[in-house]
Design a binder for these strands. Sequence first.
DNA 1: GAGGCGGTCTAGAACGTTCTAGGGCTGGGA
DNA 2: TCCCAGCCCTAGAACGTTCTAGACCGCCTC
Lengths: 346, 346
Amino acid sequence: MPPAGPDRRPTLADVAARAGVSTALVSIVMRDVPGASVATRERVRRAADELGYRPDARARLLRSSRSRLLGVVFGVQHAFHGDLLAGLYDAAEQAGYELALSAVTPGRGEQRAVDSLLRDRCEALVLLGPSSPTAHLSGLATRLPVVVVARSVRSAAVDVVRTADDEGMHLALDHLVGLGHCDVVHVDGGRAPGAAERRRGYREAVRRHGLTPRVLPGGLTEDDGAAAARTLLAGPLPGAVTVFNDRCALGLLDVLRRAGRTVPGDVSVVGYDDSRIARLSSVDLTSVAQDVERLTALAVRRALDRLDGVPVEQRELVVPPRLVVRSTTAPPRWSGRSRGDGRAGR
Amino acid sequence: MPPAGPDRRPTLADVAARAGVSTALVSIVMRDVPGASVATRERVRRAADELGYRPDARARLLRSSRSRLLGVVFGVQHAFHGDLLAGLYDAAEQAGYELALSAVTPGRGEQRAVDSLLRDRCEALVLLGPSSPTAHLSGLATRLPVVVVARSVRSAAVDVVRTADDEGMHLALDHLVGLGHCDVVHVDGGRAPGAAERRRGYREAVRRHGLTPRVLPGGLTEDDGAAAARTLLAGPLPGAVTVFNDRCALGLLDVLRRAGRTVPGDVSVVGYDDSRIARLSSVDLTSVAQDVERLTALAVRRALDRLDGVPVEQRELVVPPRLVVRSTTAPPRWSGRSRGDGRAGR
DNA sequence: GAGGCGGTCTAGAACGTTCTAGGGCTGGGA
DNA sequence: TCCCAGCCCTAGAACGTTCTAGACCGCCTC
């Protein structure tokens, strides 16, 4: 269907020649800005269609000082980043911006991902759970607005949009304590983004309820959870466990169940992220949900505010999480409240 | 550290002025091509560093006819696409190409993902498991080389790089039959890319072994697998099950085990993709592995061959899979061969 | 001493857009 | 009649690179 030569892409000039007008006018028509009569618009449009003309993003951006391009660095491994990407696309589109994606892979570090976006003349950068040192991020932020999502960064130069992870742990503990639990262990995320906040939130919440905290080393994969479960099985089982994220919780669940323990019968388990896996009917994991839509909308908004020089009041935007109660939490066996359906709050 | 004004990015001209040379010479130095003395190189490099100069990819690509840019469309939902991306980055880098990423999300269809890449002046397109109709892909391929990965397309215009899915199912069945199984059910992937080939491969292999095929509707998520498991539990259990992919297998495993059936004791299960989940020690799923490195290397190679006008002999490149035997497969209980360790081949 | 040659370097024209100035019209008011 | 405003349209200069031609210099060769 597309016509003729695979030799050269048609340009504005080709369309102009065919329609018998100037390139400037074609540009006007293609951008849908005022300055052309209806009749000409029609004619130009037809010529463009016949030639299969597509505007050249490079040339366009080269000319106009604003690139209306938002760079996003994401990790290819993290399912959660996929969700964030979807939200970012939506938010960027509403603001009239395009996204330029750059992935971090096992063979391609954050530095390289960022470099490629800088070459692309992005106006601002959105980094999903970056692992670069703070100093490096600060340096980057002197060049262009940098918004970090899902990790907290102690630097006055970069903006942060994140979930109130401590609050999420409070929700989890309120829920568990409300069910009657009084020994809740936390399986940690180590150095992963958000892990420190969640650990801190757990400690606070446990103390607030007058209980004693116990933190077990974990990580962000199922294997880390499985290892933690084995540690747990070595001693007397706690009544409940909060886990750094859903993946880790999954590994933990699996090992516990294979060891003959029932969930939530013997142990209650709370995950984090409310990932697709958690929502599956076969898993049905109680989990702390991050508000993806809000996180992404705020991240884009903040980047644009910085670009427009809008004064911002707080560098860090914290979005409240939400507890999604499913079937891995229930009153403890010994509590005499075992008729509870596991979905009741306090 | 980066100097002075956040007002304007330094350009070639700025560096040239500071180093006291022409822009052309700076260009030569930055590109590391012959045509400048060591002394000047040194001087220009220093000037560039001092200014924090970064080349502008847009302008660069605008000028040079070849963009050395490969467009990749991927689905934000699919973990497997993440693996492929990592491989594509490696392959592209070795060939001196850059990748331009465009994601398909719930709110952003394939068409839009492709359009944005076309505007970016990519030289060729790599589509990961696209769902567009064949006719549409053919149309696209008249504009620029199109390589489809992990889906087979009946169009003379587009190249395909995929795993020999039928062969994968043969491997799975040879393994199971070798263990002594004679009733193997397949849980299907429906309309998902690759599902048809795997189903066909299953049917062929079963017939070849003189057994009778039985295909159960499934899908690509854990929930689909869970549903299939419930169907299975309604009747007499087969000795073994092959499943469309690992995620689906996971859901199936979960439901079977919760119903008190043991794997591989009561049923053997084989997944597909050898995903990270399958490899986890707690899951340890026997699975058919796709050769990601080879798939991606071939995809890039093929795209470049088309660009260079190298004549290609076969439009479809089929990569053999590999069976990774883990602990979800073992001889059937009734077979009298129960002392087999489940890892033995035929 | 003329000519040629390799090594450095530069001027200026691309590349495909958008933007700034302005040039013709047409029509309406003084 | 003249002027001005408004519409539609165009010429030509950007944007930041790369590429093509060629200039200049010193040295070697004949």
